[in-house]
Design a protein around this nucleic acid. Structure first.
Length: 271
DNA sequence: CCGGACGCCTGTCGGC
DNA sequence: TGCCGACAGGCGTCCG
């Protein structure tokens, strides 16, 4: 999936084209996503205008006149804006037909994504109500992480990927942030000093902001809404670079599984 | 409460 | 060339 920078890139790119548009109808070709798209969704959103498009964690939130349409891209989802008559390809599951003749198309080969209408406000939805802070918003800092980590024995990488702790830090950016902060991904979260959490919070923000600036990491299934890949992939320092020299010290990058996810790190730079 | 494992899907890649 | 297992950006749920 798209991680936070990819979703943010998507939101920023789509916003000028979506805000103010009326939704004429929803065409669902495959409703079996992470959760089935409810049969009444078309009836609920048809005729409503899009008031605003924003991001919360990795959810896209289309604020409508009544309620909101939540979209999550899962591991392999993408959104594109196309002329309405464009014939759908394999895995193009949902079309949102707009008043200006455009079509917002959701493609998701693995079907881990979701699309759901909720009565306002979106934050009341059970999937959003327990989410932790946004990493790029005020209030997310080293003191917060240090406090939440107290007594935790889980690996710090697993800890920062927990969306109740902080949202939007996926598998790529968790490895990247820990490398930048000089922290070993397998270190117990509760055994890291406050000063090092300050470095980690700063690193998380820096990595995410850099990725957003670059338009999101280019990976197999991600394209921006205009179809162009992002350019952050070339900036990755450890993710997917097993055996290649660490940019800081030259030591080969190591790979191991932490919490059932591949993790990349430098054993010399990260402790 | 916490942490670890599992499952949901399809596509791709490397090894034999 | 073909087959088969491992693995891929997420995350809710279950179990101990």
């Amino acid at each position: 999936m798209p991680e936070l920078p990819e979703v943010e890139t998507c939101v920023r790119g789509l916003r000028p084209y979506l805000v103010g548009q009326q939704i004429l109808s929803l065409q669902v070709r495959e409703r079996r996503l992470r959760w089935p798209i409810a049969l009444e969704t078309d009836r609920q959103v048809a005729g409503q205008s899009i008031r605003e498009l924003r991001r919360r964690a990795k959810y896209l939130v289309l604020e409508l006149e009544r309620g909101a349409l939540l979209i999550h891209l899962g591991m392999s989802g993408s959104l594109r804006l196309l002329p309405a008559p464009t014939p759908p390809a394999l895995h193009d599951h949902v079309d949102l037909l707009l008043g200006n003749g455009q079509c917002l198309r959701l493609r998701d080969p693995r079907r881990f994504g979701m699309l759901q209408w909720v009565p306002a406000p979106a934050e009341a939805h059970p999937l959003l109500s327990h989410l932790g802070p946004e990493p790029l918003a005020p209030g997310f800092d080293g003191a917060y992480l240090h406090r939440r980590a107290a007594g935790r024995r889980a690996a710090v990488k697993t800890f920062i990927m927990d969306s109740e702790i902080v949202v939007g830090v996926g598998n790529i950016y968790a490895s990247e942030s820990l490398h930048l902060a000089g922290i070993h991904p397998n270190r117990a979260a509760g055994r890291i000093a406050a000063g090092r959490y300050h470095r980690l919070a700063t690193a998380i923000r820096a990595v995410l902001e850099a990725a957003i600036t670059q338009g999101g990491t280019s990976l197999r299934d991600f394209v921006q809404e205009d179809g162009n890949p992002g350019y952050f992939a070339r900036c990755l320092r450890v993710y997917g670079r097993t055996g290649q020299p660490c940019a800081g010290c030259g030591e080969p990058i190591r790979q191991r599984r932490i919490g059932q996810r591949s993790s990349f790190y430098c054993a010399r730079c990260q402790h």
